[in-house]
Design a protein around this nucleic acid. Sequence first.
DNA 1: TTGAAAGCGATACCAA
DNA 2: TTGGTATCGCTTTCAA
Lengths: 345, 345
Amino acid sequence: MTFARPPTIRDVADRAGVSIGTASNVLNRKPQVGGALREKVLEAAQELGWRPNSIARSLRQRRTGVVGLCVPLTGSAYFAAMVEAFEEVAAVQGHAIMQVLSHSDPQLELARVEMLLARQIDGLVLVPCAMPARTLEAIARSGVPTVVVDRLPDDQRFDTVTLDDAGVMRRVTGHLLSLGHRRVLYTVQHPELVTTQARIQSFEATMREAGPAARSRVLARPENPLAYAGDLGRVLTEAEPPTAIIASNSILAQWTLQALTGSGWRWPADISVFAFDEPAWAELVTPPLTCVRQPVQAIARHAWQQLLARLAGETGPRRHVVLEAELVLRSSTAAPAGTSEPIAY
Amino acid sequence: MTFARPPTIRDVADRAGVSIGTASNVLNRKPQVGGALREKVLEAAQELGWRPNSIARSLRQRRTGVVGLCVPLTGSAYFAAMVEAFEEVAAVQGHAIMQVLSHSDPQLELARVEMLLARQIDGLVLVPCAMPARTLEAIARSGVPTVVVDRLPDDQRFDTVTLDDAGVMRRVTGHLLSLGHRRVLYTVQHPELVTTQARIQSFEATMREAGPAARSRVLARPENPLAYAGDLGRVLTEAEPPTAIIASNSILAQWTLQALTGSGWRWPADISVFAFDEPAWAELVTPPLTCVRQPVQAIARHAWQQLLARLAGETGPRRHVVLEAELVLRSSTAAPAGTSEPIAY
DNA sequence: TTGAAAGCGATACCAA
DNA sequence: TTGGTATCGCTTTCAA
């Protein structure tokens, strides 16, 4: 059995008895093509089972139709949804997505993004990790159209699509305050993220505005569920423990509920729980989880649209889209035990 | 501001005063390269900020270093983990992964895979959807080394890595039987999947062996959580309702618990629940969920290793790896109410 | 060792 | 309209 190499456009042209230029024109549905030869070429291509070699095409056209996507991970519901959203919207126009994971590590992020750039991606969507300076520089130098998503709101070198973190956090905190909470704990995994910092600031400012009795507190960078459970246990057994917890993502939300369950605390009776992200299990736990539903589809749609505009040659100033998130109030938040009276907020 | 096109290897060669062949040799760390020129070339490349154009390289070498990955979706914990596992193992050797989603639709699957093939991927990992015949044919015709994962155990055209579905189901069913259950419901989303069929057969056979009192029942193809809740409610209010449910994946597990919660049924008091897949929330629900932990890492590792062997030119007969899964017994399964006595199994 | 030149498979321009 | 040919950026013989 002989391994014939896949037929090239030259084989097709030969078989149809035309030049390869003509064959190319036919096979790319160019208008200037004659009815007679047209048939022969298509027939020949059909018979030979010709498939375009998009590598060769990419080299010549200087575009690959591939868009890079770099996210920290896909295990979180949030990023998984984002990846699916991009895949869907990309396929529509025949784009392919090459996805890499940074594992929240600046070095890995840089390496993976450089790999994408070397592969001549036409555009890039980046959800940066905490210290993305070198990555961003490499991207800027490359000149590849890029949309930065979800973190890093105002870099003037890139188009961005972000959440209104401060605004969302203000509403989240406000909701807890209005329930009567005055001591609130905010737990975060990556305090260095711009996103996180905006949230922390907004959290603390909002708490301050609530008056002198309000105590805000931040628990940062838990290593693993066990260590986190330990930290939480310590905080919750202090003299004046928090009466509500805000978890900064679905992983921390999970760790939080696990820790509470493990120690026999109940929510919202012993402590209210509010989570950023809407995990799949939000309605499965009892009582169900109050959380922030981030507009993943809208993020993907805006980012893609912006990227397409740049790919089409749009050269205007950088655009910064800021989206709002929705608070989904369920039963894991309630007035703290022994509340005097709720306060309108 | 002028947009200089990125420097090519020719620019580097010119600047270093050598031929492009020599430059290429230096930049690819070929041994036959002289110490004097070597420095000059590297310096020139550095100064110009030269980056290899891997499209050009791919065209010449007839390999891209890209491996395609086609999975039904990434929303499920199982596939998300699989994607991460592949990404990790691929990056080690400088391979890139181009991922597409079939959304469990044969047509989409075919289209996406053909796109991958047109892009000259070196190899492919496919988790096929239910009716993959045409996709498989296209792949076989293309000659691209392919590993089929997780479904389709014995196709002689491809290497495969699968679970021992029959064996796992036998153990799952056996566990329920040994707890004393005699009426068991198995709910599945895609009854056409070879995997599912193997599970169903094994389920029914194992139940039959348990004697004439044993009743097995399969609920197939629920459309959505609501319809499923309706179906379940109907079955559970019959004269002799099942005392245990086996859910075929984490999505059905979620729907099941939601339906039970919604109707006020409790597990395992009213009904035991056993799930294939280990969702992130398995330990978050109360009581925690008994489930089948599938060896995702091992699957990815085996598949990748097999693919690398083929890429390296190995031509032996097809290899079919079958892996075992682990039963994680938690509290959502227990003896049915009013059991006379458990039966060793 | 180094250089020159021939591809890789397609597109795009220009002449016929 | 069609054909011939240069070209995309790089690797890889093959001579020198």
